[in-house]
Structure formats: structure tokens, C-alpha cells
Design a protein around this nucleic acid. Structure first.
Lengths: 355, 355
DNA sequence: GCAAAAAAGTTTAACGTTAAACCAAAAATA
DNA sequence: TATTTTTGGTTTAACGTTAAACTTTTTTGC
């Protein structure tokens, strides 16, 4: 087709018989150019289909990108299936859209082929969501030294946005204990990335994730105050999905059929667990209590299942706070921003029944 | 702090007494550098905290960004509240994460201050989702001449991913007519961006959106085949939200209390409308039928409302196809990719009752 | 052991901007 | 009117890469 020469600030300047800096100023420093020249430049720019200064060249020069990168701890397509992550993104968006900042969603590079891959790093900073500390993408982002906010992760070198997972799970466990439950199972997403094993509360496997770690600590504390042996409490790792929850519940109940309470570390897991219990003919909450975390399910998602007792955390607010902190100039590293959470008791938990 | 000098390919080369091209090759063309030198470079790079070639400089040189831009027709934070848009994004992600392509979410610039703003354009192409044709961000993206896929928008100059909105709505209207309904109201998101007016099927206001346009055409066709006067059918524009649907339903029923069917152009609108009908004491579907579009609601979202008769369209598939088309090399402009849709009849529609 | 081919490395130029320092003309001040 | 200030514009350099063409060294084949 019409393969006309590439249009640049320079070519425009040449054509107009002025210096390219003036053209640049027309776009970036309106005050430094007379209105007359400016509109002359704009008119010409339009006529030759110029769409503004090349962003790469501009960024190279200024060192700014006008974008922030978001890194999740799992596949992007997973994040978009998780209401928590979506709310989190909505929170981030609510800030970025008023600032005019672009949001770059960075997929995890599964293959750490080359430690120096660009990491799609045309961003001014990162938000890391509940990262697994050994993940190569995570580590690369952290190492890069850009302004970074970590969410659900504790790092003294960065601003962190945290929920008090430990206290919430301690309270939740206390609540379960107060209902008389003694045989308890725990269902969690991986304690270490990609692992799906079984352990017990006294011997927790190698950890790689702050959130899980904290939640387990909370359970431990509460159990520690009781007369229950930690070694009797099974912890099953599984994928954070409804199917994962179902599978883990099946497995735990298989190993330890007298379990009367399943503490799940997410609503999705809990929902899967409840569904599986029902399938196994175990009534929730009469025969077995189930708890979740997040409070992201529509309350009457499935009318044949009870509403879920869970911990409500404000994912939207997390996103907002994280984005605010990142875009704010006067940020201090090491700062910790706390997001409130609270236990919501609903129908999926009850006093222990007779077996 | 330790304000050591910036590390670049050049500084590394200088330090190692080699040429900077070799350092570049170590990162990009492993075959062009001996293994020995390569590991020497890598070791040194690590020791001085070098994180790989500067992405802006690289992009300036190569003209590639490794990212695609997504532009929605509304605020980003809105998109993250809409299950259709989320599924769409999930579809896009599913492709990008295997390609290692970043996804740049570009907020609409509300102020068209300067026609040449960068538009956060560090992308190799755009996906535009159901754009309003007069929107400045939309127009700017289209004008830019990058590879672009438009979704739910018809453009002979681009690849378009389309659902047959017209036929689906024609069928849906036929179905409503077949149930005996004669007084029908239509509730839609804006036919023209930002407008919330009322019109009638024979005199549709100025249009700015392909999807709405097609759906209205579909209704028109079906009504045209009946003996109903188009002028008697009211169309209410409103925000695409539950509240919008409720408000529009209230308004329409206020103007025309004998309406027995509300055709809504999204599930969210339909859900709001149903809720409002219930509030007004009008039983769905006994007194009034309601239809939606998208099929994104959990079927028993609210047990006091019937399941929604709607058009199922695969937003996830739309996203996948759009991303595939954009990233694919052998793409032809003007190509149209069709996404299947189908009517799903549920409990929110019924034969007309006696008033 | 020599020519040819392959591998490893170098030199040069360019990608398209913006920032800083500078200069000339016009406008404001005394 | 002479002096300062402001406005509008220019010149120069640099941002950190990669691509292309070139040179040198090593390997291969006979």
C-alpha cells in the first residue's frame, strides 16, 4: 500500500522548517511554544497521521512508563476465575483510572529459561499479590528495585498491604472449638508453590507463602490453647478451586472419617468441600461444619447448601490501598497497611452433633 | 544510600573489556557468543545487579513491545464488576499466558485534553471491546494503525469478533411474541455513549454502538413480522447495572403500566428489572416476563426470583478468539470471526396471563 | 598443512525522543 | 532610551539498546 516514510518529531520539524524540539514542546510543554506555531504543528501532524511521540523513545528518555505491573501468584486466567482476585483488580483499577495509569498484567513465566528476560517490565512499579517467595517471576520483580507494593506478603523492604490472617484464623479455630469440635481437618491451597501434599499441624511442610503460613500459625495458636494434639490435625494442600476443595475433603474424610469440622483457607475450597460432604451423605452443618475465607460467594449460591461461615476480607480495598501506595509519591518502604477482616458466622457451622 | 552508577550493557562491556554488542548477544542471541564468555557476562551481570536489557531501549530499537492493549467501552473498574467482561478477559489471558504476552489495560481517557496523549501505547496491538464509535480513546486506538481486533463491533478495516446479536434478538422477540405478549418494553445500555433517554422502536435515537444497534434491529425485524406497532414499543437507555435495570423498569412501567414483557439487553439489567418488578408486586413470570442477554448469572442467584430466560454467549471464547487473532501472524483484515450464541429458556418468561 | 567454512567477536549506526543550556527577539520596567 | 525580563525558539547531547556489516579466530575437511 502507501508505504510512506515513518513520521517522527524530526520529520515533522524538517517539513515545517523548524527544530524538532519545538515539535516535542508542542506536545509536552505547550507554554514553551507560541500558540500559532503549536496549532501549525498540530495541523500538520494530523494531516500526516502522526499519533504523538513514540512511547518507547519517550520512556527511554524520561525513564517513566505511566503503567504499573500486577503479578499474581498463579496463572492470569486463574485470577480471572477467582472473585477475590477480581475484586482486588477492581480496586486497583479504581485508582488507576483516575490517575490515567495503565495496568500491565504480567503472566508468570513458568520456564525460568533466562534470568534476564524482560519480564515485560515497561512499568514504573509492581504490585505483587500473595506471591510464593520462591517463584522466579516474583523474585525477579522484587530484585528489580522498582517501587513495589506487596500484598499478603511480608517484606521489610517494601510497602506491604496485609490482612491479619493469623488472628482471624485463630479466632475462627477458637469458634470451631467452642462448638465442641475435636476432630478437625484443614484444607489449604499450596503451602509451597505447586505442591499438593498432606501434613499435620505439628509438622507443617516447608513453607513458601506468607498467607498460608500465617493462617496455619493462627490455627496452631488456637489449638495450642486447647487440649487437642496438633499431630492429630491433618492439613491437605490442594489447588485453590472448588474441585480442589472437594477432592481434599474426600481425601481427609477417607483418612479420618470422624472429622466433624473442615477449616478451609478459601471460600472456593469450602464450597467444594461442602458439595463433596453432601455427596458423601454428610449433612452440613449437622454432621460436619465447614468454614471458608474471603466471603466472596453469593450467599445463596446453591440453595441446597447452607450459607458459609467465613472470614470477610475486603479485596477491593486491598487493591485500592495497594495502588494508592504505589502511585503515591511520599511512600516509605517497610510501611505496613492493614486491611480489616472479620468473621461472619452463617449456617455452615454448628455445635457438634451425635455421630 | 549506595548510589552506584547505572548498569547498562555498555557499562558491563566496559568493565569486562569487551564490546557491548557481545553483552547484548549474551542475552538475546546465545548462539553468537561462546558459552565461556556468556557465563562470564551472566556472572558479572548478577554481581552488579543487572536485570536485563532496558525494555524501553529494546522496544525503541526493535519496535516490539510484547504486550497487547485492551480497551473497554467503560471504566475499567466497571469492567471488573461485569461477569461478561471478566470472562472475556479470562479468555484473553488464557492465550497471552502461553505466549508470554503482557496485557495492558488501558483506562478510557475521559478528558480528550490532547489528541496526541501517549494512550499508554506500549503495545503491539489492541483489542477493543464493544466500543462506542465516537469515543475519543476508541478513535485514537483505531487511528493508530496498529494491528487491532474489534469485538462486538463491525469494522471492515479490522478483524472483528462478533456474535449474531441481531438474529438472537429477533428470535428472542419472536419467542416473547409467541407467548402472547403485546405490550413490550425494551431496556438497554446506552445506544449512544453516556445518554440515558427514552425512545420508541420506530424512532430509535442516534446510534453509537454496534451491539445495541444490532439487537434493536433484531427486535425490529421480529416486531415487523407481527401486527404490533413499533411506535408503541418503548426503549429505555440506562446504565448497564442492576440499579439501572431497576430504574428503567420502574420508569417504563410507570409510563405504560400494561407492559407484560421486558426485553433487557443484558442479564444485569434483567436482574435489576426482575427485582424491581417484584418490589412493585408484579409477579415474574405470571404478570410480567423478563429476558436477559449474556447468561452470566448463577442460575439461582436469588431463590425468590425465577431463573432468567436469556441469550447465552461465550464471553470466554470471544476473548480467546480475539487474542488468538491478534497474536496470530497470518491475520487478514476484514476477517469476521463468529461466536455462537443461543437462547436459553428458563423460568422468567411465560405465556401472558390475565391482567 | 592448506583452503574453506564456521564461530566468535567488533565497529558503526540508528531507533525517536526529551532535557539542558543557550540565544535572539520582543516586551516590560525604570 | 537603556536595562532587564520574558517569550519563543535553537543547538547539542544523551537515554540504552539491537541490527547489519565487517574482521578475526577457530574448526573442519581433504
Amino acid at each position: 500500500m502507501k508505504s510512506r516514510k515513518k513520521v517522527t518529531l524530526k520529520s515533522i520539524a524538517a517539513e515545517l522548517g523548524i527544530t524538532h524540539t519545538s515539535v516535542s514542546n508542542a506536545f509536552n510543554n505547550p507554554t514553551k511554544v507560541s500558540d500559532k506555531l503549536r496549532s501549525k504543528i498540530f495541523n500538520y501532524a494530523k494531516s500526516v497521521d502522526y499519533h504523538g511521540p513514540n512511547p518507547a523513545a519517550r520512556s527511554l528518555r524520561t525513564g517513566l512508563y505511566g503503567a504499573i505491573g500486577i503479578i499474581f501468584n498463579d496463572q492470569l486466567s486463574y485470577a480471572f476465575s477467582d472473585p477475590h482476585d477480581i475484586e482486588f483488580l477492581r480496586g486497583i483499577s479504581s485508582i488507576c483510572e483516575v490517575e490515567g495509569t495503565n495496568i500491565v498484567l504480567i503472566p508468570l513465566k513458568n520456564s525460568s529459561v533466562n534470568d534476564f528476560e524482560p519480564l515485560g517490565a515497561m512499568v514504573d512499579g509492581y504490585i505483587l499479590n500473595a506471591p510464593y517467595s520462591n517463584n522466579p517471576t516474583t523474585q525477579r520483580a522484587l530484585a528489580r528495585g522498582l517501587p513495589t507494593v506487596v500484598v499478603d506478603f511480608d517484606s521489610p523492604e517494601h510497602i506491604s498491604v496485609l490482612t491479619n490472617d493469623s488472628i482471624m484464623m485463630s479466632e475462627m479455630t477458637d469458634y470451631i472449638l467452642s462448638l465442641g469440635h475435636r476432630q478437625i481437618g484443614i484444607i489449604t491451597f499450596p503451602i509451597k508453590e505447586g505442591r499438593y501434599d498432606l501434613c499435620t499441624l505439628d509438622r507443617v511442610l516447608d513453607r513458601d507463602n506468607y498467607v498460608v503460613s500465617q493462617r496455619i500459625n493462627g490455627c496452631k495458636e488456637a489449638i495450642g490453647r486447647s487440649n487437642i494434639k496438633m499431630s492429630s490435625i491433618l492439613i491437605q494442600e490442594t489447588t485453590n478451586s472448588e474441585d480442589g476443595g472437594a477432592e481434599a475433603a474426600r481425601h481427609l474424610l477417607d483418612l479420618q472419617p470422624d472429622i466433624t469440622a473442615l477449616i478451609c483457607f478459601s471460600d472456593r475450597l469450602a464450597y467444594g468441600a461442602m458439595t463433596e460432604c453432601k455427596r458423601l451423605g454428610l449433612a452440613v452443618p449437622q454432621r460436619i461444619s465447614v468454614t471458608g475465607f474471603d466471603d466472596i460467594l453469593p450467599q445463596n449460591l446453591n440453595s441446597t447448601l447452607p450459607a458459609l461461615t467465613t472470614v470477610r476480607q475486603e479485596a477491593y480495598e486491598k487493591g485500592r490501598k495497594a495502588a494508592e501506595a504505589l502511585l503515591q509519591k511520599g511512600k516509605e518502604q517497610g510501611q505496613r497497611i492493614n486491611i480489616e477482616a472479620r468473621i461472619i458466622k452463617r449456617g455452615s457451622t454448628a455445635k457438634i452433633g451425635k455421630l
